[in-house]
Amino acid sequence: MSVDMLLSQIFNGLSLFTILALMAIGLAIVFGLMGVINMAHGELMAMGAYMTYLTSVIFSRWLPGVMGASFLVGIVVAFLTTAAFGLLLETVMIRHLYKRPLDTLLATWGVSLILQQVFRQVFGPINVSVPTASWLQGAWSPMPGLDLPLARVFIIALTLAVALGVYLFLFKSRWGLRIRSVMQNRAMAGAAGINTARVDAVTFAVGCGLAGVAGSALTMIASTGPATGQQYIVDAFIVVVFGGVESLIGTFVSAFMIGQMQSLFEMPFSGSMAKAAILLLVIVALYFRPSGLFSIKVRR
């Protein structure tokens, strides 16, 4: 294997890591912090992708001069729409099911099926194509033989920005303080005057909004169709479970390991064998560490 080949595989692994992390971070918040198994996470990503598509259609029709900005606006629109939808979902449904995790699983799965069919009715069964902004097309070549696609470089930057944002939100803001206190001890936090119902709603909405951002970014490398969400949901869950459900750091470490291993395995093996090998490793790892790579040590 030549040096530039190795370098571009390392870059691919890095890119895959950020894609997986971006997909999983919203789920890690909803699943990890709140304990809600949100099977509609993939469809929320698809919703974000469709919002990006709508934004690009609106821009190309009424604001063709600033088409380059449509993608950035699309990300913001995707975040706001999916977060708003998450807020609605929490208020109408999830709120009443906190004590019944298995029912949440079924109910959110139902939501995912409904959303898929809604996408099919509204946008048609055929995939839509979100044009990649011209400044994100092509590749950056730091050295001959090594081409780093700009879309992937952008996703790396976006994931870093999202990770930083989540960190600041959870650990440096008042809201984050409330969220963490509610997650640690709900009754105590309530007694201290925190509106726990509102904290739940906001946490869920933020998790959903992040799914929207991920879906928006993934329009650059994958399809946007009614069934798009199904392609992501399994990967997102694997990353979160492998990393340890209650740990955001675990989600990132797990995404990094899976991303690098996959791009490494794909060199000697075929794509589907590499995927199978990853799944096997994850199963073995979970056998020895049932609560994931990073588990919080608590006395139960």
Binding site: N12, L218, S223, S270, G271, S272, K275
Partner: peptide, 16 residues
């Protein structure tokens, strides 16, 4: 010769 699972979205390695 390379194969990917149906619905696969990552092709960067095979492109290399």
């Amino acid at each position: 010769e390379d194969y990917f699972p149906l619905g696969s979205t990552e092709f960067s390695s095979v492109i290399n």
